[in-house]
Design a protein around this nucleic acid. Structure first.
Lengths: 327, 327
DNA sequence: CTGTTAGCGCGTTCAG
DNA sequence: CTGAACGCGCTAACAG
């Protein structure tokens, strides 16, 4: 392996001089700089970030903890995040928990020993112990998707968006609106979106039957089952709000199976604006959270907090209601 | 920051002793070990991988270069890869080119300066210059998805799978079979799958009209357009093989629009077994490449080649024909 | 069984 | 403007 020492010898200067041209610090004579640069070019030398990190305490690496990269939201966020970070010379160290909650803690340690300069946590839950561990770590952190007290968070407006979506159904004339959610331990997707739906219903004096409110998990089939249950009831709703596009897709699949026309027999919407949503039959009305943009914002916030000493701030991202033909 | 030195002092031993218990190397008295372990536990100390890497030349990090993580194939591969790597204490350093080819070279350097122990390249093309650069790097590499001379590769059986799929259409009675491919600069998806289709057609004495063979890019809309062109021809085919599920989805979307019934008016298949494929109407016949398993295999090969000195091998993964209702 | 010593590759004073 | 010297945190001989 070629080191700074080799370059120094080949250019007939000392290691410090090489270091200076590398970091553009201090004075270096035009002559020496030229020689050094030439040698570097010839040899294809690149300074070791490890040695550098050891010295400077900056690794230029950001750790990202996420539950999966197999769904669109996290992969979009990571894309945006990576795009922005790479502009500033940072790389992403991936820590995929594969939905195993206990791995979150473990990865926190792993990221620490790799001396990451910052951590991005794509959260699904906000476990107390995890949060405590994060705070103790003393590494700048941004939590994405869930609000956590005392930490810098970038979240979506789950409450308002769900509420606006509900309002849209109502404006379209629907009075009996069902809801397919997920477990409320997921505060953002499970709790907040449901609250938005319930509040808007209440604000319009509309009652909701218990059987209209179903709970699924994050996959397509789950939406299918939820819709099945919704249709078992006597007092059938005319519309259904699903908290993710995949749940909506599953629901639509069941509706088609039982011969329901969308949106005349049953209107439906998702949330998330998945790539698929616009190609469904009919195209799905949904909410776009602009995840890539959120990822970029996360990067900016993290970078900022890294040199201005950890400010706990709440950033709430914007959303867009995407009106298509399913409602 | 707490270092090995602090631990040594607190436990009243030397740094080497701490190092020994940390790495389970050499002899340490039960007594000393206990003390050290206690202190480590109390302080929450974790050794710096950077310093370790500097010393041992092993970073325990694997770099992954990919064009995007927003589609299922790469994200599944990375999931499998990460799962297997983490079992051996390795982390993934992500280098997302976001489809910008020129970034591949750049990231190669980035990974090098981060002293990654190995590189996984999810390839779409096999640019000569890139391959040369990789070989010069002198870091164990596994190329996934494309065959490259002189490098360890894990590939899919694009040719055979496309051929078997074509045969399946023929067995089902189809004689006029169309094809939606992608540019042949993508050897695996563009060239090999097309070759499989053409060879099987020829082997059965079936001719293919030029207008039946369309080319798209990697998105849904592209499949829509391709199907539109296919139906413009006079001699209409009765079946269409699309080289990705997304192209098939787009094609189905167009078929539905013009009132074609699938599979009676037009049979169709994709390749890739996307999550969506089973929820389409009708469910899509496709090829499953078991990407996560491939990712795990990649990890195993890479790990093996890392201590047995770089063996250029070709691993061809298995595939499964998934028969559903679209053919 | 344990401590001492010597770097790994780099950045940063501090004298020249 | 430049080089010598030191140390970041750790592991690996080498003596004890």
């Amino acid at each position: 392996m070629i080191t700074i020492k080799d370059i120094a010898e080949m250019a007939n200067v000392s290691r410090s001089t090489v270091s200076r041209v590398l970091n553009n610090s201090g004075y270096v004579s035009e002559d020496a700089r030229k020689r050094v640069e030439q040698v570097i070019k010839d040899t294809g030398y690149v300074p070791s970030t490890n040695a550098k990190a050891l010295r400077t305490k900056k690794s230029k690496v950001i750790g990202v903890i996420l539950p999966t990269i197999q769904t669109e939201t996290p992969s979009r966020i990571v894309t945006g995040l990576g795009r922005e970070l790479s502009k500033h010379g940072y790389q992403i160290l991936l820590a995929n928990t594969d939905h195993q909650k206990e791995k979150e803690m473990e990865y926190l340690q792993v990221l620490k020993i790799h001396q990451v300069d910052g951590i991005v946590l794509l959260a699904t839950n906000t476990d107390k112990k995890l949060i405590e561990a994060i705070k103790k770590l003393n590494i700048p952190v941004v939590v994405v998707g869930q609000e956590v007290e005392g930490l810098l968070c970038v979240t979506y407006d789950d409450y308002q968006s769900a509420r606006e979506l509900t309002k849209y159904f109502i404006d379209k004339g629907h009075r009996k609106i069902a809801f397919i959610g997920v477990d409320e331990s997921d505060r953002a997707v499970g709790y907040e979106r449901k609250r938005g739906y319930l509040d808007e219903m209440a604000a319009n004096g509309l009652s909701v039957e218990q059987s209209w409110v179903q709970k699924g998990v994050f996959n397509i089939h789950s939406g299918y089952e939820a819709m099945q249950k919704i249709l078992e009831t006597n007092n059938k709703p005319t519309a259904t709000l699903a908290v993710t596009d995949r749940l909506a897709i599953g629901a639509m699949s069941y509706l088609r199976e039982v011969g329901f026309n969308i949106p005349t027999d049953m209107a439906i919407s998702g949330i998330g604006n998945s790539e698929m949503s616009q190609h469904l039959n009919p195209p799905l009305t949904t909410i776009d959270y602009e995840n890539e943009k959120a990822g970029e914002e996360v990067a900016k916030q993290l970078l900022a907090s890294m040199d201005s000493q950890q400010v706990a701030k709440k950033i709430v991202m914007d959303y867009r209601l995407i009106i298509r033909e399913s409602v």
